[in-house]
Amino acid sequence: MQFNQKHLLGLEDLTEGQITQILDTADNFKEVLGRKIKKVPALRGVTIANVFYEPSTRTKMSFELAEKRLSADIINFSKATSSVKKGETLRDTLENIKAMKVDIVVMRHESSGAHRFASEFLDCSIVNAGDGQHAHPTQGLLDMMTLRERWGTLRGKKVTIIGDIMHSRVARSNIWGLTKMGVEVTVCGPPTMMPVEVAKLGEGGVKLEYDLRKAISGADAINILRIQLERQKSKLFPSMREYFEVFGVSCDVLKSAPEGCLVLHPGPMNRGVEIAQEVADGDQSVILPQVANGVAVRMAVLFLIAGGTVEGDELN
C-alpha cells in the first residue's frame, strides 16, 4: 500500500489508517533494529538533509540513526554552525539545500508553521521534527507506538497529558494522534499553561482537569511534559517548588492512577520538577523504550514518505 503523503507536517493531516500504516511499518523496522546487522538498503541513493534550527539531542540523533539504518545519504545543518549567523533567511538556506538536490528535508524550527512556509517553495518532501508550539508528529507517533506495543490496541484506552500544554508541540501531536486512534485524552496542568479552548483540540476533543490526582485516576498511561525552565521566568507559575507540589508526578501521586498505568516523558527530563526520580526510573516508566521506538518510527516515516511499501523486499 502506497503512503499518500508527500510531507509529514502534523498528525492533524493524517487519517487513522495512515497512522496505523506508519505504526505497522515501524513495528517491522523495530525487528530490523534487533538484528545483528541493523542496516537495510531501503533508502539507498536517497539524500536527506537534517536542518535543525533549534537545539536537539534526542530527535536529531534519532533521525540521523534512522537515516543511516536505511542507508540514506545524509547532510546535517545546524543553526549554530551555519550562515544563519551571517543573517541568511530560512528561505535562502532552504533554497540552497534544494539546489543541492535533496530528496527529503527533516527540519526543526522554533517558528510554528515554518514547515508549511517551506512547503511553499521546496519541491522535495518535508518531515517535521518540531515546529514552534505547533507540532512534533514523530514524537506523537513514537509515543503511540510505545503504548500500542504494550496494549495491542489504542482504541478505548485513556491517556492523560500533564504540564505546559500551551507551549507544547508534543502535547498537540499527541492529542491529534491519540484521539484519531480512538484514545480518550485528558489534559492537566496550570490554567496559565492551557491554551484557550484546549478542550476542542483533537478528533472529538479532550477532557480538561486541573486536579492532577483526578486527571490520572482512570488513566492507562500518563505523558508528563517537560516544564521549560524559561517559562518560569515569564511567571506562568509562581515557583518550581509550587509546581512540583501541584503538578509534579511523585510515587505517591502515581498511586492515584490504576495499577500498571504507563509513564511517558518526551525528554529531556527535569528530575524532581515535573517527574520524581523514582517515577522516571520506576517499573511503570517506558521512557527509554520511547527513545528506542523513536528510531523505528522515524525509519518508517522516512521510508513511507520516500515511497516505500511494506510488502516490498526492502527489509531484506
Partner: peptide, 12 residues
C-alpha cells in the same frame, strides 16, 4: 487568541 491560535500553536 482563540481555538485557531491554539491549534496553530501561535500566540494570540
Amino acid at each position: 487568541e482563540s481555538y485557531v491560535s491554539t491549534r496553530l500553536g501561535l500566540r494570540g
